[in-house]
Each structure stands twice: as structure tokens, then as C-alpha cells.
Computed example of a mutant assay.
Amino acid sequence: MKPNIAIIGAGLAGLTLARELSGHAHITLFEKARGLGGRMSTRRRDRHRWDHGAQFFTARSRAFRALLKPFIAEGAVVEWQPNITTLSPSQAPYKRPWFEPHYVATPGMNGLLKAMSPGLNIVLQTRVETLAQQAGKWRLLDDRAEELGEFDWVISSAPLPQTQVLLPFAADTWSGFGMQPCYALMLKVHDEDLPVWDAAQVNSSPLRWIAFNHRLPGRDRHLGAVVAHSSADWAAAHLEDDQDSVRERLTAEFCALTGVTAPAVQEAHLHRWRYALATDVDNDPPGYVLSATHRLAACGDWCLGGRVEAAFTSAHRLAAQLRRLGL
């Protein structure tokens, strides 16, 4: 008899785990948001779209390239070959080469997750708040204390701080892991008012990355949409500041760096990612957290130091270990 598994979070790690275990267990994914994505989500306003989390990804492992291959063939994933520059308040811009393929999903970064989701049992807009063990099963309750079902295993692919609160592991389980915040500034600017480059790495500034989102493959190039990410250190120092002030400061910094005039910015929106960036982890970590005794586990990019591919790798390794345990 196949076990029932609850997976919390329907980002890349959660979907990867569900796909790889679907032949071995009955899987239910619980996602607190309205749609798929996690940090690969896409923000919409009217016809404009901003990929306000992950902007691109690489594929360095054979397993991740194998996952992407059919989605590349069908056009859900496309190689991105942008004109990249480096910006600094005190230095002239200079071209920044990339030495490996970089990819984006279409028509938004959550397009990959949508392509991975058919056939999976996904419950959206549901926040798992509490676990309670009873007669060898895990009972899940939502944030209204309503029952979500009984499961043999519970696996969290949520960000580290949320996983720490949810799973009853010892405190020292989480040593060596960490996450940092980031602000995402989303601007509406006509394409003709923007520089000729497509994206920029930024040094010595509250901003660390700028991309003209509408120039990514599969987007509408007529709808000028800019995403600018803050540095983690700056976000941490200003995390609880008045959000209108943060938006205004980052917009002014964007204009100063790019030469875009303030009147050219038609709209400015801000998203505060409290848990955006994973800190570095020890060399050669397992890539997941697991207690076979309690039938609890966790995976995610934070287990391997960040990056989109790290989310896949963490879930891929955990799935393999669970199969070895006879799941």
C-alpha cells in the first residue's frame, strides 16, 4: 500500500519531489499562494509582467539538464543571451561576459513550474500551520485550525524560517543554514526610455541587479517592465523601514545608475522578499534534512546555498534517499 505524503510548497523543489515520488506514494502539495512559483513567481498588473524573484537559471548538472530537455524542446524554457553590463556609482559601465548557458522560462519564470505540474494534486491558497502526530500519522491543520488530512510523511519545501517553525526538529538541525532578504523593485518604463543593454550587475550600491524584464525571451517587448533587486545587506538594514520610502530610494538609485529620468518611470511597485537568498553552506552537504524515524523531511535551495538549480538538486537527492528507504 502506497504511503500518503504531504509536500508543503509548490515551487521547483516541491514539484520536483512530487514528480519523482509520484510512482511510489500518493502525493498532495499544499501551496499558500494563489499560484505556483515560490521565488520563480511572476507578478502581473494589467498587461505588464515582472519576474520579481529569480530572473534566470543555469543548468550545471546532468540531472537538471535532463529535466529541462523536454521543456526546452516545447519552448517552455529558452536560452537567454542578453547584453549584460556592470554598473557602479563611481565607475564607467563595462560589458560583462557570461561563460555558460543561462535559461529563462516562458512566458514568465513560473512557466517551467506550470509545465511540470500536470497530473499533480496541488491545493492552492492553503497555509499549513500545524502538525499533530496521532496513531503513527501526521494530521495537518491550516491557519484556521481546519483539518487538511492525515499523512504518513510530511516534507517541507518552504523557505528555511517557515520550515523551522513547522517541523519539530531539534534546534541544532538547522545549524549551518541561513537565508537573507531582498527587495524587488518593479517599474513600468517605456522601452525607448531605457539603455541599450538588457541587464546589469551592480556594484557598490543598494541595488545589485537590474533587468529589463520585457526583453527576456517570450515576453511582450512593447510593455516596458523593469526588475531591480537590492543587495541582501541593504535589504536587511532597511527591512522594517517605511515601504514607500524604500521604494522611492531604490527608484532614485535606479535612475541615477541608468540615466533614466524620473518622469519616465510611469509606475513603481515594491516586493519585500524576507527569505530570498540562501547563505553558503558547508562543502558537499547532503542537500536535505531527513528523519526517517519521525517521517519528516525538508528540502529547498537553502539546503545547498541558493540558485534555482539548487532547489531541484535538493529535491532530487531527497527523492533518491526516500526511495532507498523503501518508500
Rank of each mutant, 00 (worst) to 15 (best):
D198N: 02
G37E: 03
R221N: 13
T313R: 06
L21N: 03
Q164I: 12
I122C: 10
E100R: 10
E192I: 13
F151P: 03
T58Q: 14
F56P: 09
R62L: 15
L15Y: 11
P168L: 04
I155V: 07
V77E: 10
S22I: 05
F169D: 01
G178M: 08
W98M: 14
A310H: 05
Y288L: 00
D301A: 00
T58V: 11
Q133F: 12
D51R: 01
T261I: 09
W50A: 08
F177A: 07
Q201D: 15
P101S: 07
S22H: 12
P3D: 00
L141D: 10
L112E: 11
F177V: 04
L185I: 08
D220E: 07
A237D: 15
A315S: 11
V78W: 00
M40E: 13
A278D: 07
T293V: 14
P159Y: 02
S41Q: 09
D233E: 15
R307S: 06
V78I: 01
Y103E: 06
Y94T: 09
A13P: 02
T251W: 01
A319W: 03
F99G: 13
A268H: 00
R39A: 12
S245D: 04
S61W: 12
L120T: 05
M179F: 08
L124S: 10
A276R: 00
A170E: 14
G300A: 04
G149P: 01
G176K: 00
R139S: 09
N4F: 06
A66Y: 08
E146M: 14
S291Q: 03
H190A: 12
V77R: 12
A76T: 01
M186N: 02
S231D: 06
P70I: 08
T293S: 15
H269T: 04
R249N: 09
S22E: 12
V165N: 13
D46S: 14
L296G: 01
G218K: 00
A135N: 11
V104E: 01
E192T: 13
A211H: 04
V265N: 11
Q321K: 06
V289E: 09
P195G: 06
L223R: 11
H48E: 03
A135T: 08
R219E: 04
G14Y: 08
R45Q: 13
D191G: 10
Q180C: 12
A115M: 03
D193S: 07
A66C: 08
H52A: 15
G136L: 05
P3Q: 02
N110S: 08
E267G: 01
L140N: 00
Y183L: 02
A236H: 06
V165H: 13
P168Q: 10
Q125Y: 08
T293F: 13
H102W: 15
S291E: 07
D191H: 06
V104A: 02
G224L: 06
L120R: 00
A184Y: 00
V308C: 03
A33K: 04
R127H: 14
Q201K: 11
W50K: 08
E74K: 10
I7A: 05
M40K: 07
A76W: 05
W273L: 07
A311F: 05
N213D: 15
G178A: 07
D244T: 06
A18P: 10
L185A: 02
F57P: 06
V123L: 09
C255V: 06
A76F: 02
V226A: 01
Q266F: 12
E248F: 02
A33V: 07
